[in-house]
Write a protein that binds this DNA or RNA. Structure first.
Lengths: 227, 227
DNA sequence: GAGAAAGTATAAAGATTTTATAAAGATGAA
DNA sequence: TTCATCTTTATAAAATCTTTATACTTTCTC
């Protein structure tokens, strides 16, 4: 019934993986699993699951870190499954973009219901880690941008700005919104920053930086990307 | 900061309502509350909250029933807050369309984080903010106007004016009203401004700017948009 | 309906604000 | 230190707003 509903499990405990694989499979989901954070990110990129179940206690990296990296591009539901039950952990995970948080040991029926609820919620969320605009490619998961198939050298701030704009293709983003997202609340008035970075970005991504086709100025408001 | 983020609390226990009202208010949400299921549904209709917190133990009806009725039309997040902690209750509620389920007693910080997570998820739910008038489209959310599917270049004032008129399709807006809305109180007498901007706008949105079909003059009164 | 008065449209010039860009100085990591 | 990046400053260019002038249209009065 749930033929193309792929779920990715990121957990280092074999028993948990087994249990989940069996339970979820028998409920019609297609399962992939990873035993470390980085394997998890790779599999998320390659299989684009409809939902990710993430354990916080991973061997190679902090689970919250992995969550943050996933959320840079992955917009569908992520359910945290963890032994940690402190309020602090829960709040941090939810604020980093987790959709739900369940503590181990968990009740199978509840997990399944929460999975159904989480999947139900992000219907119509098209997501992709690779955004393409003509000859420009923005690879969100790998933090890489290409122009005519060649990697463009971008600083991390430049990439964040490009990613933010690209993710919001066709939408006008105000100066304040961009400044808040990239630099944080304290920089909301630093419009000149933004201008400097926009100019630099245009030099790198536009065919004719003086006549931008991708990164469009909306005078008095902000900037808009593409179409 | 969350000025127009209205939350509805449906719970019959006064203490819980009080606690939630105080906690959520101080976090910047606007709160309405109801002590029975039917009152809750009424208030949900009249205030269209961004999120509903629903208790399952209500005096007049079963909470699950209320949940079902709400879900017939209410598409935003509903968080269940209940003393019932059986797996059966949780599964039923989630499958009836609840987004999250928290058992009493709850931790305030966790509730707040789950509220933030739930609200965050509805952000992708596109509001109906696309106004269409023949070949003209006004996309309020994305701050863009199109004519024959091509983006029209509008200054921010021009867009504000267009948006105001378009939102009030078929209604005559007086000069003073428009001036107050777009430029502010101090400009109420500057009727000539308005004429200049109306002319510019017509050049951009009308097929024949000299014979306007969309932006109609009501001589001596103001302007009217469409039909 | 003619003529006057009031209201409206539009172009264009001038003033102001906003934006683009280079480049110099500051910061911080290797 | 050196290098890459971030931050600040300065200034030219572009876009937008505001004002002015004039022609046109509607409404009102007789």
């Amino acid at each position: 019934m749930n033929e193309n509903e792929t779920i990715l499990i990121i957990d280092d405990e074999v028993q948990i993986r087994r249990l989940l694989e069996i339970t979820l499979s028998s409920n019609g989901y297609k399962i992939f699993s990873a035993s470390s954070g980085h394997e998890g990110i790779q599999k998320a990129v390659s299989h684009t699951p409809i939902l990710i179940i993430l354990d916080l206690g991973l061997p190679d990296a902090d689970g919250l870190e992995i969550l943050g990296k996933l959320r840079e591009w992955y917009q569908k539901s992520i359910i945290i499954l963890s032994v940690r039950s402190s309020e602090d952990d829960i709040v941090k995970a939810l604020d980093l973009g987790a959709n739900d948080y369940l503590t181990k040991p968990f009740r199978t029926g509840e997990l399944l219901a929460r999975i159904r609820a989480a999947i139900r919620q992000n219907q119509g969320t098209p997501e992709n880690s690779l955004l393409v605009f003509g000859t420009l490619e923005v690879d969100l998961a790998n933090h890489i941008a290409r122009k005519n198939n060649e990697i463009i050298k971008l600083t991390s701030t430049e990439f964040s700005l490009l990613a933010l704009l690209a993710k919001n293709e066709g939408r006008v983003l105000t100066h304040k919104h961009i400044l808040k997202e990239i630099w944080g609340m304290g920089y909301i008035e630093q419009t000149q920053y933004l201008r400097v970075f926009v100019a630099q970005l245009r030099k790198k991504i536009e065919d004719e930086p003086t006549k931008p086709k991708l990164l469009i100025t909306e005078s008095g408001i902000g900037y808009r990307f593409g179409s």
